[in-house]
Each structure stands twice: as structure tokens, then as C-alpha cells.
């Protein structure tokens, strides 16, 4: 399947949180577990105020730090979304540490974040959140179309919201959730340029190095064992045979 993406138009979101509950219901999440949160942001001084409802949920980064850091492969990418294989999750929580948006949580000993309703999409439906949004603020489709739609909307919104812009085109290699913002991202509590991690130092450097050192030492020892063991027995039996007389000659400082 082509790269997919979701669109969230903040100019339309009324903060009703239908998506939050629909997701909770449709995905049968545990008590206390939610994959979507809606944060209310209002800035300015009375009466010159500006505000928006900002979704706090997995943004499905193309270069997802969580996927890179996940030790077990429980997090992986498919069709532009960051998927979760819950059965594989160890609950280590590394993903929660590295996510630039602080999205993943550990609930009941496993990761908790949007696992994507890809099965619904494949069955010709939409994700639960998209299906129910009364404001129609959410869409899901091929990423190119979604991006084009988002850009068109941002342009159309400039009259009402001079700072209207698209978020997610380039961040973290391109997000799988494209936001149409009514204000600059920093105003809405979104990192304007979230930085991917220098994760290769760890994953590609230290870990293979460590494993390599262990395997190499094991291998060397395994081979050397036969030589050393034979030589040791030679020495021991030799020494035994000579009854220790010759020992002193081996090393000048050696004393009885």
C-alpha cells in the first residue's frame, strides 16, 4: 500500500474529544489508557486571545525514534504508520523516553500509543477517530493527497488565521499525521523542529561492539582452550614427572 497519512485540521477541531472516546471504545483500551489526548491552548491577554485544541497523539514519524530505539521490534513502520505488535513489547519504556512528542506511555507493562487502525483502512473503513469526528476535522488517505489538501487548507485559512501553516511535512522525516495549524507550532506547544536522535551511536555502535566483543572473546577462548589445556597438562605432567626439580630454572625469581 502507498504511504498513508492522517490530516487533522485544527481550525475545525472543537475539542469535543469524541475521537478520544471512540478510540478507547473501538480499540478496547484499558481503564486509564488513551491513545489520543486533546490539549487546549489559549494565548494572549483578555480580550485579545487566540486559541486552539491541539491533539496529543502518535504523529507517526517517518524517522521514528521509538521504532529505532525499540529493542524487540514491537514498534515498526508500515504504510507510513508506526505500528505496534503488543505481543512483542517488553515494556522497557525506551520509546517513551525518546519520543520527541512524549507520546508513548507504559500501561499494564506494555507500550500504549496509537497502534493505527490499519486493519480498518484495509477493510475500506476509516480509523475510529476519523469515522466519528463530528467536526470532520480528521481525514485519512494517501500521504501525497493529504499533504496537498493540508497545504490548500492552510492557504485558504490565512485570511482568518494569518499564521495558518502545515505541520508534519518535514518534521522527523515527515509525519504520518499532517496538522493544519492556526498558529505557529511553538505557540501550540509543538516542537517546530524536533531533532532525530543520534541513535546510531548506540544501536549501530555500542551494541554491536559489545556483542562482537563477547562473541569474539568466546570464540577465541573456545579455540585457545584446546591449545592451552594441552599445554597446561604437558606442563603439569612434566612438572609432576620431574617432581618439581626443574621448576626454578624456568624463572630466575622463582623460589621454592
Amino acid at each position: 500500500m502507498a504511504q498513508l497519512a492522517m490530516l487533522i485540521d485544527l481550525s475545525r477541531c472543537l475539542g469535543c474529544q469524541a475521537c478520544v472516546i471512540a478510540c478507547k471504545a473501538g480499540r478496547e483500551l484499558l481503564p486509564g489508557e488513551r491513545w489520543i489526548e486533546i490539549r487546549e491552548v489559549v494565548v494572549g491577554r483578555f480580550p485579545d486571545l487566540r486559541g486552539a485544541f491541539v491533539p496529543h497523539r502518535c504523529f507517526h514519524c517517518a524517522e521514528a525514534a521509538c521504532v529505532q530505539v525499540c529493542p524487540t521490534g514491537a514498534l515498526y513502520k508500515r504504510d507510513g504508520f508506526t505500528m505496534v505488535d503488543f505481543g512483542r513489547c517488553s515494556g522497557c519504556g525506551y520509546c517513551a523516553e525518546v519520543c520527541p512528542f512524549h507520546v508513548p506511555r507504559i500501561v499494564d507493562g506494555r507500550v500504549s500509543k496509537c497502534a493505527t487502525c490499519l486493519d480498518l483502512i484495509q477493510a475500506g473503513q476509516e480509523p475510529w477517530c476519523v469515522q466519528t469526528c463530528p467536526a470532520g476535522a480528521l481525514q485519512c488517505g494517501p500521504r501525497e493527497e493529504i499533504l496537498a489538501e493540508a497545504q490548500a487548507r492552510a492557504v485558504a485559512l490565512r485570511e482568518r488565521y494569518p499564521n495558518a501553516q502545515v505541520y508534519g511535512e518535514t518534521q522527523m522525516g515527515g509525519l504520518g499525521v499532517i496538522l493544519v495549524l492556526t498558529e505557529p507550532p511553538e505557540v501550540l506547544g509543538l516542537p517546530p523542529r524536533p531533532q532525530p536522535l543520534p541513535i546510531t551511536v548506540w544501536k549501530g555502535g555500542i551494541q554491536p561492539l559489545s556483542l562482537g566483543a563477547i562473541f569474539l572473546s568466546a570464540l577465541t577462548s573456545g579455540i585457545a582452550f584446546f591449545i592451552a589445556r594441552r599445554r597446561h597438562l604437558e606442563e603439569k605432567n612434566g612438572a609432576f614427572a620431574r617432581s618439581g626439580k626443574a621448576q626454578a630454572s624456568h624463572h630466575p625469581n622463582r623460589k621454592e
Binding site: C16, A18, I21, A22, Q131, T132, C133, P134
Partner: peptide, 10 residues
Amino acid sequence: RGRLCGRGQA
């Protein structure tokens, strides 16, 4: 029209 609010979903 095929949509519900959060209360309905609950």
C-alpha cells in the same frame, strides 16, 4: 450522519 460525540461513544 454516521458520527457520534464522545458521550455517545461512551
